[in-house]
Design a protein around this nucleic acid. Structure first.
Lengths: 220, 220
DNA sequence: GCCAAAGTGGAAACAGGTCCTCAACTTCTT
DNA sequence: AAGAAGTTGAGGACCTGTTTCCACTTTGGC
């Protein structure tokens, strides 16, 4: 990759090495907190380094994003793997949705990656293709066990993620756990008829609803 | 308003009057199709008029939006009024959600207004304050009748709208009715335990899911 | 310590977009 | 036909983010 494209043999000077680490740390934090559309300038400031330096090290933003999110995407796949092997097939469905949202909730950049940003397309689509058979399996297993309503499909999981992603974005500052309530609602809808339910996670006041809605289009 | 601010007495020249109508029609179509962030330039082109003319007539974009969406916002309130008076309280809940989404589905601008754009804030907040008591009433009535799960709240309706709004945006081009499936899922979650269900509206293929997700962040 | 090579800072050019203006022109009205 | 009303659209102001570039600083081998 770009960082050692010039002289694979000769090691980087110590300050250069240190700056690369700073930039990676800063980029990771910035992407996590504000998302993938952050400018190089923001990352530079956060890393306490000049724009030029960021540019010299990572002329290609895609690669920076790509390598940074490798682990996060792996974590999502790991959740799916785990969901697939849970004793109770329904718990697998719950785990898969809840686990991916939890990962996405804390990380704006990851959320953008999952819900279809154009960045890092290559690595994302690789992750997606690893994910897809697992999702299918989790849903099919639940269906075979009668643990999920029979007309549910694997497609319902990513699309549920998409809908809840909007809430994650909008409510992040005012009610970071609000998604749990609406996930619970969807999960109750996904269960077969006649199952017993747990009470819904807490709601928020009408004032907070207004704030959340106001935040929805503020952030982009 | 701006259109006759100068000389309330003297009538506009015929071409000027015609242009105002063209601009209003164009703005209405553009806001409906691409949303409130459309530039004056796009509206001008659509109206077959120059940018300067648009500016002369509507120096204040807020007012243009504001007056254009008056009827649409009224339509949402009308849906809520209607929902309130339906025989079956549960049908009222369904009608309110389904009706508002149907209105929003065909109109990007209205959707942005409803889910918290900063534009037209004044008229929107007036609409919202007319809406709120109706929503509360619809939900309370359903709860009193045991037609909705007891831990549901009025807040759940706007927030459900917010989540499904993301799907409307993303799926508009590829699967414009997909929201019906996820609304049905949420509604099934909102019903009291043990009620009978209808089958879910149709899903889409995994390929279309990919397209929808890809579209999610493309449009802004 | 010295100094060449490596690396950096940050101003500035560039790119792409929207907003808005205004002087020259056209159309309407009487 | 003349003057008022209205329109045009190129162009300036501004914004945000990207990318370049070279004078300067830092490093590390000697």
């Amino acid at each position: 990759m770009a960082t050692q494209a010039e002289h694979p043999d000769r090691p980087l000077r110590r300050d250069a090495q240190r700056n690369i680490e700073r930039i990676l740390a800063a980029a990771s934090a910035v992407y996590r907190d504000v998302g993938l559309d952050a400018s190089h300038e923001v990352i530079a400031r956060e890393a306490d380094v000049s724009i030029g330096t960021v540019y010299r090290r990572f002329p290609d933003k895609e690669q920076l994003i790509d390598s940074l999110f490798e682990q996060e995407l792996d974590a999502v796949v790991a959740v799916a793997e785990q969901a697939r092997t849970m004793d109770d097939p329904w718990d697998g469905v719950v785990r898969l949705l809840e686990g991916s949202i939890e990962l996405a909730a804390g990380n704006v950049g990851l959320r953008q990656l999952i819900t279809g940003s154009r960045h890092g397309a290559e690595r994302v689509s690789r992750a997606r293709s690893r994910l897809e058979p697992l999702v299918v399996e989790v849903v099919e297993r639940a269906r075979a066990a009668g643990a999920i309503r029979p007309d549910a499909t694997p497609q319902d999981l990513p699309l549920t993620l998409l809908t809840l992603g909007a809430l994650l974005d909008a409510a992040h500052d005012h009610a970071p756990d609000l998604w749990r309530r609406y996930l619970a609602l969807v999960l109750d809808g996904l269960r077969p008829e006649g199952r017993e339910r747990e009470p819904l996670p807490p709601t928020v006041s009408l004032e907070v609803v207004d704030q959340v809605i106001a935040a929805a289009h503020e952030r982009r």
